[in-house]
Design a protein around this nucleic acid. Structure first.
Length: 585
RNA sequence: GGGGUGGUAGUUCAGUUUUGGUUAGAACGCCUGCCUGUCACGCAGGAGGUCGCGGGUUCAAGUCCCGUCCAUCCCGCCA
């Protein structure tokens, strides 16, 4: 028998019991006479004591023990004595007086210290992930991730959803993200691809009559990495038939808020808000606003039509926009802070960042003050609330670039002013997205989501496609897109029309999506769904800076698995079978 | 693909500009010894370095110059 209890079980109730514990040596404190060891397993720590008077042989073995050794001990639970309680441990009132010990396995000195929460180079952590995962923080992340996923499975199962596993080897849809490709041995020169999401398969499941589907699904995208991106990641994928947008939003909102209340009761959950895409862009410049803080934009476009100030007048007269953001008490901003914010605006394509600063007890200072008329200044004060002690920033120009740059400035201000409270969760829906957008490079119409999104404005689809809205809804948590969903097109005729507007020839749409179009001709029910990024959700709830911290075995920033050494070469005979020749390395 | 920052002991970092100059430091970890109430135990001692790599300037390079590799953050990309 290896253990009668875990290292987090025993309390003063167990005093006098004889117990067996197994675990890792967390720390050893050798007092010459007495030796204390903190024994660790995933449940917690228990202090064990070696006393030469109790068992000289065991005490001698304890002298040779090093961190991360795996040991099994037998001993008696006893009180530490009131003065020696450790209130930080669940087992802090007791200790085990060891009568027997056996070393189950030795350990080399680890490449980094397991018991310290200090930053270690991530490459090293990933190479020795099995050691990294021994850390309390990582164990907690992985356990909480399990609880989150279990909650979702239970919640949806109780509501008649069924989980359907969809295949990993599928057919490519050459649009969207770059796909991972898997060569076929039976059909040389042909390839499977790994799914970017189960999108098509879940829609086909609706045609099959499984009206409430979900899946904790692995998805694959061969794009460059980011803090919140991995080549493979996990989605909570959901699809419903005969459900309205309102019903889908309601269900998801309930699921997430209930999850948070149950698993993260210490967090403050703000009331869930809803914004149309247009509202969100107008107020925050982004479609994933962080609503933990205000700093909303003010629209000044109509006030500068025909103004003397050319930069603003040009924007106002040429279909552009002028937005302002006033920061109360921002009058104390330093030159450097303003420069940093200007840099931020520039990254997103702004030429600069205009501002008026009004330090307490001084006059308004600004390079653009001399261009503004009395009336215009008064309007700015009136509309934005700009007053003594404040600073107001402006963005003027084309809609998209003003939104992007000023939106980034607002986000940065949230950091600078410490407005992003980790324990506050602000959930919101952003809906009524434009169905299409113009590509920046080619000027062509592209889908803002995917070509199966149901249009809301059928009548203006042909005449003014850029104004047409789609039944798309994004779920946003603290400024991160947590999930996105749409109602789908279930009418093959409307679907063909969409392909036509996108300029996809019939032959091509047939090759790419023929199977879906055919399926829809056999009685597809109205349906829609949503997918959440599980990794991102875990990251946000666990207050982690990136999703690698909540994934047990992640790839590094260059999509390598440093622990296993993947990707790797395969031998020539395998390549031959696949009909593949390596041209360059 | 573009830009910023970084690479010094097992680990995390200082030292690199203003000023190139003796034997490259600290903390933690590791090893040895002492220590019977610690819990980040304590005390004493010790080992441990191709200063990412290659080239150059110089009497002299961790420090200056060029190249290169790697890491990291941001942009592009991510229907």
């Amino acid at each position: 028998m290896y253990r009668t209890n875990t290292c987090n079980d025993l309390t003063s109730k167990n005093i006098g019991d004889q117990v067996i514990l197994s675990g890792w040596v967390h720390r050893r404190r050798d007092h010459g006479g007495l030796i204390f060891i903190d024994l660790r397993d995933r449940y917690g720590l228990t202090q064990i004591v070696f006393d030469p008077k109790i068992n000289k042989a065991a005490w001698e073995i304890a002298e040779t023990i090093r961190p991360e050794y795996v040991i099994k001990i037998t001993g008696n639970v006893r009180s530490r004595g009131k003065d020696a309680y450790n209130p930080n441990l669940h087992t802090g009132e007791i200790e085990i007086a060891v009568t027997e010990i056996s070393i189950l396995n030795k350990s080399k000195t680890p490449p980094f210290e397991i018991e310290k929460e200090k930053n270690v180079n991530e490459d090293l952590r990933l190479k020795y992930r099995y050691l990294d995962l021994r850390k309390e923080r990582m164990q907690n992340n992985i356990i909480m991730r399990h609880k989150i996923i279990k909650f979702i499975r239970d919640f949806l199962s109780e509501r008649d959803f069924i989980e359907i596993e969809t295949p990993i080897l599928i057919k490519g849809t050459p649009e969207g993200a770059r796909e991972f490709v898997v060569p076929s041995r039976h059909y040389n020169g042909k390839f499977y691809v790994l799914p970017q999401s189960p999108q098509q398969l879940k829609q086909l499941s609706m045609v099959a009559g499984f009206d409430k589907y979900f899946q904790i699904a692995r998805c694959f995208r061969d794009e460059d990495q980011r803090g919140d991106r991995q080549p493979e990641f996990t989605q909570m994928d959901m699809e419903l038939s005969f459900a309205t947008q309102e019903e889908i939003m309601e269900l998801n909102e309930t699921m997430l808020t209930t999850l948070i209340k149950k698993l993260y009761p210490h967090k403050t959950l703000q009331p869930v808000t809803r914004l149309t895409w247009q509202e969100s862009m107008d107020k925050y410049g982004v479609d994933n606003p962080d609503l933990r803080f205000g700093l909303e934009f003010t629209d000044l476009t109509p006030d500068f039509i025909g103004s003397e100030f050319k930069v603003f007048a040009n924007a106002a007269n040429n279909n552009g926009i002028i937005r302002a953001i006033n920061i109360e008490n921002g009058g104390s901003f330093t030159r450097k802070t303003i420069d940093d914010l200007t840099e931020t605006a520039k990254i997103y394509g702004a030429k600069g960042l205009a501002y008026l600063i009004w330090p307490k007890g001084q006059d308004i200072k600004s390079p653009l003050l001399k261009f503004l008329s009395e009336t215009e200044l008064a309007t700015i004060k009136n509309k934005t609330g700009f007053k003594e002690g404040d600073i107001v920033f402006f963005g003027a120009g084309e809609f998209r670039s003003v939104c992007e740059s000023l939106g980034a400035v607002r986000k940065k201000l949230g950091d600078l002013l410490n407005l992003k409270d980790k324990n506050t969760l602000a959930l919101c829906w952003v809906y009524d997205f434009p169905l299409y957008e113009r590509s920046k490079e080619t000027g062509e119409l592209t889908c803002s989501h995917h070509p199966f999104t149901s249009p809301k404005d059928l009548d203006i689809l042909d005449s003014d496609p850029e104004k047409a809205l789609g039944a798309q809804y994004d779920f946003v948590l603290n400024g991160n897109e947590l999930g996105g969903g749409t109602l789908r097109i279930h009418d093959p005729e409307i679907q063909s029309k969409i392909f036509k507007i996108l300029g996809i020839p019939e032959a091509e749409s047939k090759r790419r999506f023929g199977h879906i179009l055919e399926a829809f001709s056999y009685g597809a029910p109205p349906h829609g769904g949503i997918a959440w990024g599980i990794d991102r959700l875990c990251m946000l709830l666990q207050d982690e800076p990136n999703i690698r911290e909540v994934i047990a075995y992640p790839k590094d920033q260059k999509a390598k698995d440093l622990m296993l050494g993947a990707p790797d070469i395969v031998n020539d005979s395998e390549l031959n079978e696949l009909g593949i020749q390596i041209i360059s390395e």
